[in-house]
């Protein structure tokens, strides 16, 4: 069975360097995890997330700046609002809101990133098996 695909929205200054560092340290995570880097996690449009689900991504993970955000101290709150709004859209479309996750990933958070990816993939795989 094909492994579920996860789309990660990372941030150019904080979480994407962490994902780079994860690779540098050869800390493995599933190869079906794909990253699109953007300036800030508060810039992710719900429209993009819904597009990812529509096209076949099993899960979307926002690797947020959290309190390290160089743009705004309200980043966590703003990104949280985006996730909440998107959850509503997902419910309307019959998509399990648990397929969208968000966590703060700081620029050196390599272990947390790997842990999040592995547990998210596990959840998505089990979810897929149950449906099958």
């Amino acid at each position: 069975m094909e492994s579920p695909k996860i789309l990660v929205f990372s941030t150019e200054k904080i979480s994407d360097p962490a994902i780079d560092l994860t690779g540098l340290l050869k800390k493995y995570y599933p190869s079906t995890v794909y990253t699109i880097a953007i300036p800030c996690s508060s810039a992710v449009k719900p429209k993009w997330i819904m597009h990812a689900f529509e096209k076949g991504f099993a899960g979307v993970f926002i690797a947020a700046d959290g309190t390290d955000c160089p743009f705004s101290e309200k980043c966590t709150e703003n990104t949280g609002n985006i996730v909440s709004h998107t959850h509503e859209f997902m419910k309307e479309k019959g998509i399990d809101p648990a397929r969208l996750k968000m966590a703060a990933i700081c620029s050196v958070c390599t272990d947390p990133f790997v842990k999040h990816m592995k547990s998210f993939l596990k959840f998505l795989t089990e979810n897929k098996e149950q449906k099958n």
Partner: peptide
């Protein structure tokens, strides 16, 4: 394709 691919998935 290095930090986020070949290095991260050198096990696969």
């Amino acid at each position: 394709i290095r930090e986020q691919c070949s290095w991260a998935h050198s096990d696969d």
